[in-house]
């Protein structure tokens, strides 16, 4: 089932929690809805589920306008941030609950519940109460309960936020596997950019209710639509640098970053990712003020003019505090933004 969102808006008082959002999700895709806290992710999800009524705009599932259809008739599965399992029911009763509500016979419901429980690997816990399960297991029960009614759309609201780092990674892979297995159109809310990039077919980044960019993860990472998206994606964070352009020469302070750039003269904001630097004999000199070992990489803190710049190099490189290294920026990796923070080009 493909989803179309047109001009979707939700206003609380004089705040636009979601502001004229347009989005099109293809059938069977997993979309990560990404943004900082309070940017309107949950509100968007709740409007898709029907629990919140939009102030303006329309939602289509396939060709059908579902904007005024109540949640019980929308054929969606929703996994809540805190799972919202029924605490007094066993796992089996939790999973069969939506089926029995629809008039499925008990024996039939149990059979279908077992089937889906096997997919999410919780079939051995059918007689336990939710309180007797780990966070990850509870989450899989919540997914099973959402999937058992064979919904057209699966919505997940920060389902991993209660889990520890290791379990998060394992569970997000699990969600991806389940999603691929049942081929269901899925929207996954998160404020963790790495999580979003690693499992989504496409990412939608929001800021203060406004959709910033909707793209395939890799394209978005390399071609962020604006400074906000560039800053939001990637760890360690992108370097924000002030640059001057004159006759096609991009400079930051005294350092020449690029020559021959097709760019009008002037002053610009630029972004360079820490991993966009490479060691180069003919490059710019960087004094290493500080360094941090992260395992695979070595993160160097240096200065470009007055601005602190993070540079990522391989961890087998021999550098110490106080050393000077020479480095250049990879071709096409200087992101230049205009005064309204939009990306002008990559140089």
């Amino acid at each position: 089932m493909d989803i179309r969102i047109e001009n979707l808006t939700k206003t609380y008082g004089n705040l636009n929690a979601v502001d004229h959002m347009n989005l099109r999700i293809n059938d069977g895709e997993l979309v990560g809805l990404l943004g900082p806290s309070g940017c309107g992710k949950s509100t968007t999800l709740f409007m898709l589920s029907g629990l919140t009524t939009p102030t303006e705009g329309k939602i289509f599932f396939g060709d059908k306008d579902v904007t005024s259809i109540p949640p019980e008739d929308r054929e969606i599965g929703l996994v809540f941030q805190n799972y919202a399992l029924y605490p007094h029911m066993t796992v089996e009763d939790n999973i069969t609950f939506p089926l029995i509500n629809r008039g499925v016979k008990k024996a039939q419901a149990r059979e279908e519940a077992l089937e889906i429980a096997k997919v999410v690997k919780i079939d051995q816990y059918m007689n336990r109460k939710p309180s007797e399960l780990s966070g990850g297991q509870q989450q899989r029960v919540a997914i099973a309960r959402a999937l058992v009614k064979k919904p057209q759309v699966l919505l997940l609201d920060e389902p991993l936020s209660n889990l520890d780092a290791k379990l998060r990674v394992a569970t997000r892979e699990e969600i991806r596997r389940i999603q691929q297995e049942v081929k269901i159109t899925t929207i996954f809310v998160t404020h963790d950019q790495e999580e979003a990039m690693s499992i989504s077919d496409r990412i939608a980044v929001m800021k203060e209710g406004v959709l910033q960019q909707y793209e395939v993860p890799q394209t978005m990472y390399l071609n962020p639509a604006n400074e906000f998206v560039a800053n939001f994606l990637g760890t360690p964070e992108i370097n924000n640098i002030e640059v001057d352009v004159k006759d096609g020469v991009i400079t930051a302070g005294d350092a020449v970053l690029r020559t021959g750039a097709k760019l009008a003269d002037g002053h610009y904001h630029a972004g360079i990712r820490p991993e966009s630097f490479y060691v180069d004999e003919n490059g710019i000199s960087f004094a290493v003020d500080n360094l941090r070992m992260t395992g695979r990489d070595l993160l160097l803190f240096t200065k470009l003019g007055q601005t602190v710049v993070r540079v990522l190099v391989h961890s087998y490189m021999h550098v110490a505090e106080g050393d000077v290294i020479k480095a250049s920026v990879r071709e096409g990796h200087i992101l230049v933004f205009d005064s309204s923070e939009k990306l002008i080009g990559r140089f």
């Binding site: 969606i76 929703l78 805190n82 029924y86 029911m89 609950f97 939506p98």
Partner: peptide, 21 residues
């Protein structure tokens, strides 16, 4: 928790069943 009632709506639970279950 309000979310239990939201979940019940998503699960298409009839009103009386929401009360009893």
């Amino acid at each position: 928790p309000e979310d239990l009632y939201r979940a019940a709506r998503i699960d298409s639970t009839p009103k009386l069943r929401v009360f009893t279950r």
